[in-house]
Simulated scan of single mutants.
Amino acid sequence: MEDKEYYSVGEVSKICNISKKAVRFYDKIGLISPDKVCDDNNYRFYNRKTLLSVPIIKYYKQMGFKLEEMRSFLEGGTYSMLEKAFRQKIDNLKEMESEIFKMYTSVKDWYDLILEAEMVIENNVREVAVKYIDASNLCFMEQDFNYNYMESIVNIDFTNYIESIHNEITGPVMISFPSFKERMEGKSTRILLLQKTILPCQEDEVVKFGGYMVASCYHIGAHETINDTYQKICDWAAAHGYKCAEESYERYVTDYWTTRNSGQFVTEIMIKVTRE
Score class of each variant (00 low, 15 high):
260 R>A: 00
176 S>T: 03
162 I>W: 01
71 R>D: 03
157 D>W: 15
2 E>G: 10
13 S>C: 12
25 F>A: 00
215 A>G: 03
32 I>A: 03
55 P>Q: 08
84 K>Y: 10
152 S>M: 15
255 D>C: 15
159 T>M: 05
156 I>C: 09
48 R>P: 10
260 R>L: 07
113 L>T: 06
147 Y>S: 04
15 I>L: 13
236 W>I: 05
151 E>G: 04
81 M>F: 09
239 A>H: 06
267 T>H: 02
221 G>N: 09
80 S>A: 11
171 G>E: 02
173 V>F: 00
239 A>C: 11
43 Y>P: 04
251 R>M: 09
275 R>G: 12
30 G>S: 11
81 M>K: 13
8 S>D: 02
135 A>F: 09
253 V>I: 14
120 V>E: 06
237 A>L: 07
114 I>M: 03
83 E>F: 11
44 R>A: 08
198 I>V: 10
221 G>P: 02
52 L>C: 01
108 K>T: 09
107 V>L: 12
78 T>Q: 03
69 E>Q: 11
274 T>N: 03
273 V>C: 06
198 I>Q: 06
252 Y>C: 08
227 N>T: 12
256 Y>P: 04
125 V>Q: 07
222 A>P: 01
251 R>C: 05
165 I>W: 01
236 W>P: 08
20 K>E: 07
234 C>P: 04
88 Q>G: 00
192 L>F: 00
189 T>V: 14
22 A>L: 15
6 Y>C: 11
54 V>T: 04
183 R>P: 00
226 I>S: 00
266 V>K: 04
181 K>M: 07
112 D>T: 14
255 D>V: 14
224 E>W: 07
